Computed example of a mutant assay.
Amino acid sequence: MAEQSIRGPSEMNFDEPAKNWPMWKQKFEIFLTAANKNGEGEPLKIALFLHHIEERGIEIFNALGLPEEQRTLAIVMTRFENYCIQRRNTVMETFKFGSITQKQDQSFVEFETEVRNQAKFCEFTCSAEGCNQSYIDRMIKDKIILGLENKKLRSKLLESSQDTLEQIIEKCKIAELSETNKKILNTEEDVIKVEAIKSFTVNKTKQPYVNRQRNTQTCERCGMTSSLQHDKFCPAVVEGRTCRICHKPGHFAVMCRKKYSGRRSNSSNYVQAVGGEEREQTGAAVKSTQSVDQQRAADQQRGIHSVNINRQYYDDADV
């Protein structure tokens, strides 16, 4: 593999050397292996180290004052590690660890990784003489429980104080997966409800429009063209006509909804009833038209009479 195709680590950030050094060191070791440089001489490997760590690292290397015979890559990296660790503020790192909480929309795996990475810089080991036992797992478990965003899950885990770190992590993953599946199902149900409401609304709005259009064409009582003016003078209502089929008032036989026994086309009674009523209906229609004309004439006469009265009033006033 060509050396030019393998990229080494970028410049190390020395603002937080204790936190950044472990990751940068690991990246450089991976680079040496991938570029097949582990078998090269020490001067070349040190040169590669200084080339990638760049300006601030070169200044620290010069300040170390290593003799030529001690300049191996292992010694140089050990000196850099001591330099970085000495600048670790354990109290501040522990404060940062305690401040970690699961952010909104942050997955549990991301939250767990953040807690574990920060715990590495807190030196959670027993300080008693001869002990040096680590209690990092307990601190990670406590931080995960107390830092969870899901309050319901947090309360449930607090009741399981005897669970191990692995058991707590497993419960958190199961709960997160359950919540994700629940959101997916709720979303699908909402889509189905919305589509159902849209379909119902369209059908509901279309049907009355058809009915209204149908009702404005023909009067259901007399069969004449329906209008607002006609409704006031419908002959079947105004004259109190009675249907000759069902004998109920308010409509003509031709508009009767009751099914007549036998076929209407062959029924002499039906023909007689409808025929006689058609003649009456024609006369009623004429009367209805006359009633409308009479009403208009009366309205005009009242207007003329009102004008004459007002004119007479002003004439008397002039006298």
Rank of each mutant, 00 (worst) to 15 (best):
E54S: 03
P208N: 06
L146R: 04
S160K: 11
G65N: 14
L165V: 11
K258P: 00
Q104C: 05
N308F: 13
K156G: 01
Q167S: 10
L48F: 00
F233G: 00
G276N: 12
T180I: 12
N150M: 04
K259E: 07
D142G: 04
V76I: 13
F252T: 00
R87F: 14
Q118C: 11
N215T: 13
G39C: 02
H305N: 14
T90F: 15
K259C: 03
K198G: 09
Q102H: 14
T242K: 04
T125F: 02
Q272N: 14
M12F: 08
P208Y: 02
V286T: 14
P17R: 01
V271R: 00
K103A: 13
L158S: 08
I168K: 09
I245S: 04
I46H: 00
V109M: 13
Y313I: 15
E166R: 08
P22A: 11
S107C: 02
E55G: 03
R296L: 15
H247W: 07
A34S: 07
N20W: 08
G276V: 02
Q281A: 11
P67E: 12
N13F: 09
S127P: 00
R154H: 04
K45H: 09
V210D: 13
R311C: 10
K182T: 12
S291H: 09
N62K: 05
R214L: 13
I85M: 15
R87H: 12
I304E: 11
L73N: 05
